[in-house]
């Protein structure tokens, strides 16, 4: 079970959080200007790397804030967490 350090509440257990997928994902628009493939890309296509990935999680049972988590998909190590208002942490594959 992961221990995630919420930028507001400190380290908390994984069940207090909900996973929100890889970031960044840019929502394309306006809808009439978006091709089917660009929309499908936005909905379904993710890098899903083996190694470091940036994700967003929400501290649902805590401060209810969304945050960025830099996690290793192999070891589950978490290198950094950040607020949405902070610059997105860099990852080196």
């Amino acid at each position: 079970m992961l221990r995630i350090s919420c930028p507001w509440c400190g380290p908390r257990d994984e069940p207090e959080f909900r996973w929100g997928g890889e970031v960044p994902v840019l929502r394309p628009g306006p809808p009439e200007a978006v091709s089917d493939s660009a929309w499908a890309q936005y909905l379904f296509v993710r890098d899903n790397p083996k190694g470091w990935v940036r994700e967003r999680w929400v501290h649902a049972f805590g401060c209810r804030q969304w945050l960025i988590v830099v996690r290793n998909t192999v070891t589950h190590e978490i290198r950094a967490t950040a607020r949405l208002t902070e610059p997105l942490p860099e990852v080196t594959p």
């Binding site: 909900r18 929100g20 929502r27 967003r56 929400v58 649902a60 209810r64 804030q65 969304w66 949405l84």
Partner: peptide, 13 residues
Amino acid sequence: FSGFEEWLQCEWP
């Protein structure tokens, strides 16, 4: 409600 928060925090701050 969680959906509202997600859109407001992540997409349309």
